Simulated scan of single mutants.
Amino acid sequence: MTDTPVEKLSFEEAMKALEDVVGKLEAGEVSLDDSIKLYERGAALKKHCEARLKAAEEKIAAIQQNEDGEAVGLTPVTGQ
């Protein structure tokens, strides 16, 4: 298990770390205490990935297109 803070990971790094966590938990070869730590890290990684995806979706939704479908600017995204 890496000590890199979750919030410092890119989306791709967080997804890989989440896959590693799931693999270790599924293998069942870790102690109960380590399983709990892995589960907690996995939950944090999942939350981080969801937030990164949501931010990307909002950016994509904010792109304005002209009649030819070309990106011409951005619409500010307001919080909900």
Rank of each mutant, 00 (worst) to 15 (best):
M1D: 05
D3S: 07
D3F: 04
D3W: 02
D3T: 10
P5K: 10
V6H: 00
E7H: 08
K8C: 05
K8W: 06
K8D: 14
S10V: 09
S10G: 10
F11P: 00
F11Y: 11
F11K: 06
E13Q: 15
E13Y: 01
E13G: 02
M15P: 00
A17Y: 00
E19M: 06
E19H: 07
D20H: 06
G23H: 07
E26H: 08
A27H: 00
A27G: 03
E29I: 02
V30F: 02
L32T: 11
L32M: 02
L32H: 05
D33M: 06
D33V: 10
D33F: 06
D33G: 04
D34E: 13
D34V: 04
S35W: 00
I36G: 09
I36E: 15
L38C: 07
L38S: 05
L38N: 11
Y39H: 11
E40I: 13
E40A: 08
E40M: 08
R41C: 01
R41H: 03
G42M: 03
G42C: 06
A43W: 06
A43C: 09
A44D: 10
K46A: 03
K46S: 03
H48L: 06
E50F: 12
E50L: 15
E50T: 12
A51E: 10
L53P: 02
L53G: 12
K54F: 06
A55M: 12
E57V: 08
E57C: 03
E57T: 13
E58Q: 14
K59G: 01
K59Y: 05
A61R: 13
A61S: 05
A61M: 02
I63N: 01
Q65T: 12
Q65G: 00
N66C: 07
D68W: 03
D68A: 10
G69D: 05
E70T: 14
E70L: 11
E70V: 13
A71I: 02
A71N: 09
V72W: 10
L74Y: 14
T75R: 15
P76H: 01
V77E: 15
G79E: 15
G79R: 15
G79A: 15
